[in-house]
Amino acid sequence: MPESVTPLEGAIYSGFVTIMDAGLAGMVLLRADLGDSDVVLALKGAGFDVPGAGELVGDLGNGALWMSPDELMILCAHDEAEATVATLTEALGGMHVLVANVSDARAVFRLTGDGSAVREVLAKLSPADLRRDSLPPGGVRRTRLGQVPAAFWFASDDEAVLICFRSVAGYILDLLSKVATPGSEVGHF
């Protein structure tokens, strides 16, 4: 079987923040009522922790993102996504849910930089409040980046993971590279 490729094909840009293709990632969309304790119990029973509103548990490869009151993005290895769909479908059998493998629908970036450089690069493109107190590691922000939707979280203070739709991966890479040009540091955060 041919290998899957990411839309970024391993791209990397080194500015005052390094922007790189985070590689293949498994993503499974789950629509379900997260306020329903049966759903949460079933998920826990199958080994899936449910993050609180606006939060994430785990990380890329193994975790879950809170997307909305009735939507989670389950993170797993890319080649385990179909199996994860099957596990979830079985665990939630009989309940009103929608499970879909969307691993190929998105591009994932890893942004690294010293101090608050990563926050600064994101703040050039997103209206989100990026002060550390407002978005500490563990929090997820779905927002606008330039002219397209995106979501990001801080894995640590100097590293963020960013997800956008596959078709605009090139646009986002160009945007991020542009605003991470050395010499354009703001020094604000």
């Binding site: 839309p7 050039k124 330039g146 002219q147 078709s167 605009v168 646009y171 945007l175 542009k178």
Partner: peptide, 15 residues
């Protein structure tokens, strides 16, 4: 701001 030239509008690309 950044929205000029190639970045004036997002271009969506198929695989």
């Amino acid at each position: 701001g950044e929205a000029r030239g190639e970045l004036f509008q997002p271009v969506r690309k198929t695989p």
